[in-house]
Nucleic acid binder design. Structure first.
Length: 424
RNA sequence: GGGUCGGUAGUAUAGUCAGGUUAGUAUACGGGCCUGUCGAGCCCGUGACCCGGGUUCAAAUCCCGGCCGACCCGCCA
């Protein structure tokens, strides 16, 4: 007999069906027993009367909550709701008690408790909803890049010989008789590929060995990377702006149920995202009574002040050269063709025009105190007709933090890695 | 890396400042009543002070150390 999803039961009224799920609740009212069977975000009530079903009653009475069951029975309407009158209830996985958290979500669990029992936590509806939204957002991003834009999806190595910007912040790994590192970004690879691909994107994990203790940093995170050729940072910003709008416009439609269960509406599509320069932001800070030395990075407080003035989403462009990596194209002496996409004080993305002139690129390396000869493996490809190019990296987990309105980035990551947590 | 606050039944919490009777509540779990519940209801029951040391007649409560957690700053995605 074919298994019927709960969502399709309205098509089976008066018919016999097989359904699968977990017993969320069991209520006995005199000689009638009600089971709530959950499948993801869907539930259906199973109603069993004792009279005439004594054997089945006795069996079902012994099944613990949260056990997985396969039920065969007839679908009928009771009032304006559907229910199933069971013929058989088969336990396929009995649940022990007590559980390490309450899967019905009535008694809240602390984040740490949730993470310790992550696999069980996905039965909590709002947590299920978060990861369903995450899946849908990932699909929208891929759909936008691949189908709307025609970019090439790439996969670059996560085990690499050396760092993007020197050797700091990397996790070393044993690689046969050598030391290799976990990739902190696909930066150099995606740029090299501008030698032939018009536009590339990658959605992949990266690793940074920084002992950050915040609610927006992880040691393993998913980055959405883009690189486009014959382009500058304004082109990359346009793609990013389109992407953000595309995802936010569509997720409201495709994840209605999840959003309702979460009880948080994602931010409205921002349309045209305001752009201010680094200098503009210092001006805003100055007017608000914050003094910032030119060249300093903007801290969280400063970004909150700017966001209050400008709005939730905003770009800050033309950052000082001293705060950006060697591969960024310089703009005059002190500035760069760079941008950050902010949502309030959270940095969602950063990107810019890349330096494609090989001589200037080597100068940049020296400027940053790096040895150009060590980067020969990379710069040599810039000798074969490297076009101007630009791109960005977007933090998928941070984007989801914003979309779902959760407080801690660990809530939107199934198995987060931070300096303390390596398990599960 | 630096800082602040915290750790009480399976889970989530009250009590800690001002040490003192049986450590309270919700939920879960076990038992009982109930033939349409739907966060079912009512009654009964089981179940906890992170670890080690100290102060004291007396420590969940005060002090020290350890372990663990949440948050803030820095770093960035």
């Amino acid at each position: 007999m074919k298994r019927i999803p709960i969502t399709e039961l309205p098509n089976y009224i008066g018919k016999k069906v097989k359904i699968c799920g977990w017993i969320e609740d069991k209520r006995i009212v005199g000689k009638v027993m009600f089971l709530t069977i959950r499948q993801g975000l869907e539930t259906i009530q199973v109603t069993l009367k004792k009279t005439g079903n004594e054997d089945l009653w006795r069996d079902v009475e012994e099944i613990t909550r949260q056990s997985s069951v396969v039920i065969v029975g007839n679908v009928r309407k009771f009032g304006n709701k559907l229910e199933i009158i069971p013929e058989s209830v088969k336990v396929v996985g009995l649940s022990k008690t007590p559980l390490p958290l309450d899967p019905s979500g009535r008694v809240p669990a602390l984040l740490n408790t949730i993470l310790d029992s992550r696999a069980l936590s996905i039965r909590i509806p709002h947590i299920y909803a978060i990861f369903s939204i995450r899946s849908k957002v990932t699909n929208l991003i891929r759909d936008f890049f691949a189908n709307t834009k025609g970019f090439i999806e790439i996969h670059t190595p996560k085990i690499i010989a050396s760092g993007t910007e020197g050797g700091a912040d990397l996790f070393p790994v044993e690689y046969f008789n050598r030391t290799a590192y976990l990739a902190q970004s696909p930066q150099l690879y995606k740029e090299q590929l501008m030698l032939g691909f018009d536009g590339v994107f990658e959605i992949a994990p990266y690793f940074r060995a920084e002992k950050s203790h915040t609610r927006k940093h992880l040691n393993e995170f998913i980055s959405v990377d883009l690189e486009i050729s014959f382009a500058n940072y304004k082109d990359a910003m346009n793609v990013l702006e389109e992407l953000v709008n595309y995802v936010l416009e569509n997720i409201i439609e495709t994840a209605q149920k999840e959003i309702q269960i979460l009880g948080h509406r994602p931010p409205s599509p921002p349309g045209k995202i305001p752009i201010l320069t680094y200098d503009d932001s210092l001006e805003i800070l100055h007017k608000s009574g914050y003094e910032f030395e030119w060249g300093e990075d903007l801290d969280s407080d400063a970004l909150r002040v700017i966001s209050k003035e400008i709005g939730d989403f905003f770009f800050i462009i033309d950052w000082p050269w001293r705060s950006k990596p060697f591969y960024i194209k310089r703009k005059g002496d002190k500035l760069t063709e760079s941008f950050d996409l902010m949502y309030r004080e959270i940095e969602l993305s950063s990107g810019g025009t890349r330096e494609h002139n090989v001589d200037q690129l080597k100068k940049n390396l020296s400027d940053k105190g790096l040895d150009p000869s060590i980067f020969e493996f990379h710069t040599k490809f810039y000798n074969y007709g490297m076009p101007p190019h630009a791109g960005f990296g977007l933090g998928l987990d941070r984007f989801l933090l914003v979309i779902t309105g959760r407080e801690n980035i660990r809530e939107v990551v199934l198995y987060p890695r931070d300096p303390e947590r390596l398990e599960p």
